[in-house]
Amino acid sequence: MKYKEDYPAFYAVRDVGRQKKRFILLMLLVALCVGGAVFVDGLRHSAEVVVSVYSGEILTVGTPEYRAFHWASKAATIGGTMRVSGWVLSWFAAYYAASHVLSHGTQSAAVLSALGVRQKTILRVMLHESLLVLLPAVAFGTFVSTRLFRIWLRRRILAEGFPARLFQTHGGSIWSFLILCAGILLAAAIPLLVMHWKLGGRSVGVLFREGERE
């Protein structure tokens, strides 16, 4: 007989492990960190284009091109530095969110184990639950941040009189985004891997004892 484990196990973990308000807060935290990382990467990317256009040229002080180049040089430096900080913050936020999901899902996972659900199914379900929190947060943070960046940059260009044709407003580089996402996926997997390692061949079901002692 083929056992269909994923569907009911998934909903069992979701239903026990989820506390709506806390989950929403976690998603907002991740969205905020990801949004910040995407924003500063957009700043860096847009500014670097302007810097590369005018590098090696002689610009007259006070002209729109000179002011744009000067501003872009500073923005590229700041954006480049803060991009890495944004990544690290996002990865920590993702790790924190995934750890929280794991800690809340552990007791239900222990029950599932006692009910005869296979270990790898339980771990897969818990990873799905972490991704359910993280992926919408990343998407939301990226979308909102990209929109805000466009609005902000256009206003800056208008206010300062920079040549608008030089500036790209689509956001950061795709490689930066992929690095950010890869780190988030790894951060989500780490708590599960740690738990699996700590169990050391024991079933997740032993964790129900620890829950009962608490």
Binding site: D15, V16, Q107, S108, V111, A114, F208, E212
Partner: peptide, 12 residues
């Protein structure tokens, strides 16, 4: 299995 604290799924 029967547990001390029942271990039921509270939303069900």
């Amino acid at each position: 299995f029967v547990f001390q604290s029942y271990q039921l799924i509270p939303t069900l």
